[in-house]
Computed example of a mutant assay.
Amino acid sequence: MISVIVPTYNEEASITTCLKSLSHQTLNRNEYELIVVDGNSKDRTCELARAYADEVITQTSKKVGGARNDGVLRAEGDIIATTDADCIIPPGWLEIIKDDFESNDIVQLYGTVYPIEEGIKHKLSLMGANTFSRIGYYTRALYYTLGCNTAFDKKAFVKAGMYRCIDAGDDLEVAQRMRKIGRVMLDDRMKVGFSMRRFQQFGTIKSVYEWLYIVTNGGKASKYSYSKRNYK
């Protein structure tokens, strides 16, 4: 079984679309479970999520990484897949994950992203990120994994220490520990629709700068708040 973990916080505008896309996969519904881990939302996120998720639990650990860890500890699957509440998941996503873990000796799998919102600027931004991800992977210089589109062997993930509970870069950092245990693999077929709402509301340059600042400061920085933001 595959356990899909979706962290949420005040996501009533997007959670239904995300979970609908996860409910209409080419993989049989009895082959995966959906676990929503909510960070004490003040809106209807949990109410809406219960219509699709197998479990909706309240987050007890800190940050987005902690929410994912909470979900993993409740998961029944031997494969863990993670995404975000503002993403749209293509129908074949889980089947690709299943096939890759069955056909390859891997501990972590990740893919690329495409923008949900229209606009050449968004396409170019994510084209750059995907190119960086591919170069890092094929040169073995950096595994640029994203929490919205990754999957783990559960036993290996727990053995590696799971996600660090930091402000940003937890999804990038975990791959460096996973690669010490086994093979980390990129599959270009494994795509998810990525929301550009942060860049639209706060600006691309500002958002990227804040992320880089936090990551280069070890993932913790009181100067900027990167998680649990409210979007218009």
Rank of each mutant, 00 (worst) to 15 (best):
A160N: 11
K191T: 14
M190L: 15
D188K: 12
V158H: 02
R189H: 10
K155V: 01
D170G: 08
D167I: 06
M190C: 14
R179K: 14
T150Y: 03
E173C: 07
K180G: 12
Q176Y: 13
L186I: 05
G193A: 10
D153Q: 06
Y163D: 07
K180L: 15
G193D: 00
V174Q: 09
M190F: 15
A168Q: 12
D170Y: 13
M185N: 05
E173R: 13
G182K: 04
M162V: 05
K159E: 14
A156Q: 03
C165Y: 10
D153N: 15
D188R: 07
Q176W: 14
D171K: 05
V174R: 02
I166Y: 08
M162N: 00
M185P: 04
D153R: 13
M185F: 06
R177N: 09
M185I: 03
F152R: 07
F194I: 12
G193T: 02
M178R: 06
D153I: 02
G182I: 04
F157K: 08
D170T: 05
A160G: 08
M162G: 01
A168W: 11
D187Q: 09
D167S: 11
M185D: 01
F194M: 12
V192Q: 02
D187E: 12
K155D: 10
G193I: 01
A168P: 05
D187A: 12
G193C: 00
